[in-house]
Amino acid sequence: MPIIDVQNLHKRYGDKVAVEDVSFTVERGEIFGILGPNGAGKTTTVECIEGLRKPDGGTVSVLGLDPRRDTAELRQRLGVQLQESELPERMKVREALDLYASFYRNPANPDELLDILGLTAKRDSAYKKLSGGQKQRLSIALSLIGNPEVAVLDELTTGLDPQARREVWDLIEHVRAGGVTIVLVTHFMEEAERLCDRLALIDSGKVAAIDTPAGLVAGVNDEQRIRFRPSRPIEDSVFAELPEVRSVERRGAQLVITGTGNVLHAVTSVLARRQIIAGELRVDQANLDDAFVALTGRKLD
């Protein structure tokens, strides 16, 4: 049985439709991503899962509970990190964890959590003295302090520098290894590609596709783009007649070849036979951004 089951979720704010029609299921133990551009309805969707908002249509079930009816039970078993939620400026890290630990029947050990999150050295620091990454890690710690079975994390790494972002990603993998099912809301495709077992692409309140990151990319586009500067002049036609090649272009001294399947092998074989060296060689493959464009006709950011 799925741990989260969302069917035909619909939510409006007044006249404005935030979520048109969203359905997906999340299995126990997976990291499930919800990816989409600003305003797609991601936060609204997870807030319905968390029981913070009342859906206007459709059904939501989390751990077999109805988030609006069995709210008290859900609060004990679902950890939440909200997009944009701070703590009182002068509250200290350890105080925040102790306070929140006291709310749960079966809390995690605050010291262990501080250790795992790399915040032990900051335990006596006031919230306002923490860096963005530290605040984010504390926020994750608070979402895990109740030993939840499921954690919903909204915009985990927005506003963090790349280094801090990678640290948070490692942390999430660690948490999942501990058996927590994770729903991750993001608009970074790199984050989704790196962490998620499966993900839902959401656009304008609708699900555009649900699949593994690799499946999404493969499904829409296996085109590759090869760029290099040949060490000696060579005619376009040599490449154009290869069956794998779709197009050949020149950009100054550079050749840009696009194609599918084994195109890289085909191109490098030609070069090898003619003893031409490919300088500044780059190969771009389709990624989730391209998948998103192909599915919705729009860019992710």
Partner: peptide
Amino acid sequence: EKGVLRRLSASPV
């Protein structure tokens, strides 16, 4: 303003 109340709404208290 800071979302402290909202964070509590998502907790058991």
